[in-house]
Design a protein around this nucleic acid. Sequence first.
DNA 1: AAGGGGTGTCGAAGCGCTTCGACTGGGGTA
DNA 2: TACCCCAGTCGAAGCGCTTCGACACCCCTT
Lengths: 339, 339
Amino acid sequence: MVTIADVARHAGVAASTVSYVLSGKRTISTDTRERVQRSVHALGYRPNASARALASQRSNVLALVIPLRTGMHVPVMMQFATAVVTTARRFDHDVLLLTADEGPDGLERVAQSSLVDALVVMDVELHDERVPVLRELPMPSVLIGYPDDADGLTCIDLDFVAAGAHCVDHLADLGHRSLALLGTPSAVYERQTGFAQRTLTGFVEAAERRGVLGVETPCEHTFDAILHTVEQLLSDHPDITGLVVQNEPIIGPLLDVLRRLGRRVPEDMSLVAICADDVAERQVPQLSSVSIPAERIGDQAVESLIAKLEGGEVPSLTLVPPTLTARGSTCPHGDLTTA
Amino acid sequence: MVTIADVARHAGVAASTVSYVLSGKRTISTDTRERVQRSVHALGYRPNASARALASQRSNVLALVIPLRTGMHVPVMMQFATAVVTTARRFDHDVLLLTADEGPDGLERVAQSSLVDALVVMDVELHDERVPVLRELPMPSVLIGYPDDADGLTCIDLDFVAAGAHCVDHLADLGHRSLALLGTPSAVYERQTGFAQRTLTGFVEAAERRGVLGVETPCEHTFDAILHTVEQLLSDHPDITGLVVQNEPIIGPLLDVLRRLGRRVPEDMSLVAICADDVAERQVPQLSSVSIPAERIGDQAVESLIAKLEGGEVPSLTLVPPTLTARGSTCPHGDLTTA
DNA sequence: AAGGGGTGTCGAAGCGCTTCGACTGGGGTA
DNA sequence: TACCCCAGTCGAAGCGCTTCGACACCCCTT
């Protein structure tokens, strides 16, 4: 392995000069700089990450904590992860992958051993036991999602309350008077997962505001569960004509179920999904949907984290406004002129 | 931050003694050991990872290179990633996440800067430009999947040739004489991705051996593409009664397509999938399938890597034998007594 | 001609740990 | 009794880098 001393010798300068050429932290004459750069190239020098981290107290590594929980939709998580890694690399940082099952201890471990400089935590629950740990940790962190008490934290999330409301508004605007929210598996609600709770809140509030019926039910992932849930729903509330779905993996089977029950989409049943755009576009008919801007949120998380590392101030809570794209799964219902 | 010197002072011993207590590399009297351990606890000491890495030339971090390529099935990749992280933690290692789009340079970067001790590389192509780099790198690596020339490498993979053959054998045993392989998107074949190529090879060879018709076609992910592909297939080869599918995301829509075309599964068309068990079990009917033991392969990859780090010898190529589980999507065809 | 202020470079002191060789003292052997 | 050996501990020397203060040297001012 070639060290900074080898480069210094080769270029005929002191090691510290090489360091300053590489970091740009002091002015170096053009002549010296170029000579050093040539030596770096010639020898194929790569700074040793540990030595650098030890001396500078910066590892240039971010921790990314991803959930491995039941009911989480994997492709969306991967989009977050990918965005985080890609953006981290833009800022010359690497990403250490932690799974949520290490819990709060895992955060303490990587933070207190100075393995990482900062943390990105996904899948935050309303009352998350990692939150107090994050508050005490001697390094910045950013949460994707946010707990009940976001004080002293930096959180970024899609505004799921608005997302739930948008769906209701869209359907209500089309004249639908009875709506249902087909949500995530009940385990997700029981964990008090923020995004699920908030969508529900937005859905319920908007339904009230618009004076329409808004019922909600969790839904598991198996075909039978979907079939049973929808049958139950439609027998309890036969007049439902608008469905909001926040549960990506059931979307395909749900369309089958509706077909099997003789409900055409959108003629008999309008449907709005909260899901990634490509999923919505892949269905037949294409689904009206509120998209999940995973890439944007992942980018933003890393950018905020880097800003905090450099001593900048970032807002405590950033809510990304949702956008609804109307596609072929929703259509007007009833006599709109009286609505 | 509390350092090893603080612990040593607190326990009334030398810093090196603390180090030896922690590493177990020299014998320490029970008395001293316990005193040191109490001090470690009392002060909440965590060794500094960079200092440790610098002094010991071991970072205790593995690199995991995951693909972000078109056509890859995300949930399966996450299963690999999860298994790798979990097993790495069992061996007291962490995992640095790299995306494949950093290419060979990314491998060199993390290896030569001593950021990691070893690498796990997923989604290996038959002629992978990262392979020569891996051969030269001064540290061990394990590939999940394997290139044409696996010499000097350590590779682990499901035996996809056998997987393809198993599917054919299963269908042929049931009396089917005309089979088709519905494969991955053509981009995956064009990249010369090992698993896709090998399944194809196994499928073709087995069809030949069994004296049955075996045609193959790639298939994109959109509904229209699936519909078109299947229609084309059935019009070119109307007598096809057995389908092998290696393309997880199309499984749901494919069942729709068959239904729409009036082919009942399994009465009119038997279907074997190469996919994760939970996906197979979620369908109606449940699918006969060859499962992808992602967890087992991920575990095995890390175990081999750790063994190599400790100087052990590991086989160059480990092929995990596939297992086929018959479920409700395959049934006998024709007059079996004459087959 | 003397003084002052940049600019560019160097040397040395750490960063917190591991590891090597050396030392001590107690127990066994000859 | 003299010797040796081993278990247990210590001190010091690094690992490869960053960073601080010091120091030339040159140019400009007065």
